[in-house]
Design a protein around this nucleic acid. Sequence first.
RNA 1: GCCCCUAUAGCUCAGUUGGGAGAGCACCUGACUCUUAAUCAGGGUGUCCCAGGUUCGAGCCCUGGUGGGGGCACCA
Length: 478
Amino acid sequence: MTEIISEMLQERLKKLEEIKQAGINPYGGKFLRSHALDAKMEVGNRVSVAGRIKQLRGHGKTAFADLKDEKGKIQIYVSFDSLGEEQGNLFRKLDIGDFLGVEGEIFLTRTGEMTVKVEKFTLLSKSLRPLPEKWKGLKDVETRYRQRYLDLISNEEVKELFHLRSRLIRELREWLDKKGFLEVETPILQSVPGGAAGKPFKTYQDTLEMDLYLRIAPELYLKRLLVGGFEKIYELNRSFRNEGISTRHNPEFTMLEVYEAYADYEDMMNLVEELIVHLAEKLLGKKKIVYQGKEVDLTPPWKRLTFRQAMQDLYGVDIEEEDIKKLTDKLRSAGIKVEGNEVTRTGLVRLLERSLSATSPSPTFIIDYPAFLCPLAKKKNEKVAERFELFVAGCELANAYSELNDPLEQRERLKIQKGEEGEDGHLPDEDFVRALEYGMPPAGGLGLGIDRLIMLFTNSPSIRDVILFPQLRQGKNL
RNA sequence: GCCCCUAUAGCUCAGUUGGGAGAGCACCUGACUCUUAAUCAGGGUGUCCCAGGUUCGAGCCCUGGUGGGGGCACCA
């Protein structure tokens, strides 16, 4: 394998050497373009354009090539007679993949194609490795993820997907800004990782001589800001979880967290519904979409179902009045497989994901979770917390609650949690609790999985398809 | 961590029952003054993922490993 690469490399290295011998720099600098390749050009225009050679068709004394930039492509035509010896010799050493700047006049070929008649060209970058095949492109999933640049070069729809990702994030900011939310940034390196379940990545700061963790969520810092007097804030955050990797989980992922003082989880339900509908209309131009063969209708209002009712409907289990052990027993006696000693929150989420994807792929809010599963949420009553999760097409997309602002209760519930949690740096965050002791206004808080939302909008089966450089195991040495 | 699938040329892929490693594109040599998946003539460029094993003989069968994909588990 390396043998043949080096043979193809050899060929091009030889050309590169010859170009240098001729006193030409194969890696040119700034090149002034008159037009991007999606621009309107007319016959007779003198243009100066640049791009990568995608195809090359020699015809003896002439040649055609297709030049491509980010926006589009154009054909160029070379007549060696009129190009002169030096430029002619250089042109014959060009390959598919090279970057070129050309100057010349636009004309129409016999078949009517808009073409630049090259009067002068500049080699802007010599390519040493062959590009993926022109017709079938690059399919190998591993290469597509590992060498995303090749994927972007050969698969136009991938580039479009990431354009959409970028537009979505811009729209989302604009929408929140218009609603009066302030964008803030909080620490990624935290000494006490909190605000979610999940195992953190651990690291170390030399000067301070202290252990630090990459955040698993920004939640506890954002709530400190509520204490500080900000009333409507959000953070578009990269968070990190040191756990299993799957079609829905990348170790680093993008999330939106929103907090609004004097609001509650009902307001968050309305907010996330309005936001997602807005994004769908703006970016997709429709409210009915198809995800992996399933019809998803985003038309509001979305279905709301209490957790108790959902478990009743889906499994015939009444979970009211239960603690976690009784709940586990009930699920088991209803014939539901529960691994381990007792069911976990995620176990329940997985159950809901599977059942809801079959029965109702359209958005469904599951509301009012058992309180023991929600240590940071305000209780509605003894058994139930004011929390919801949003499921769309069998995927947990958002999670929100009325924030618990009673410091004494918060300390107790984190302690209980810590007891259940055991090791792993999951101590209660004392400074966070202290902040609550100064007083935090009641608030609604929301977390929304941005990668997953983009999966939904782009009909992508895997989270790796919507992250430019997804995490993979270390491959072979190059 | 467990289970299933998968790995052949730069790319996309074929490879029969275990018997000479192939095709298209790309690439190389030559021809060609409007082609556009240019065409024509010639050329195969390979650690069949890795390491063992069975066999007279392994791309193919067996065992172990590695990468990738999917599922399960884990993810207050």
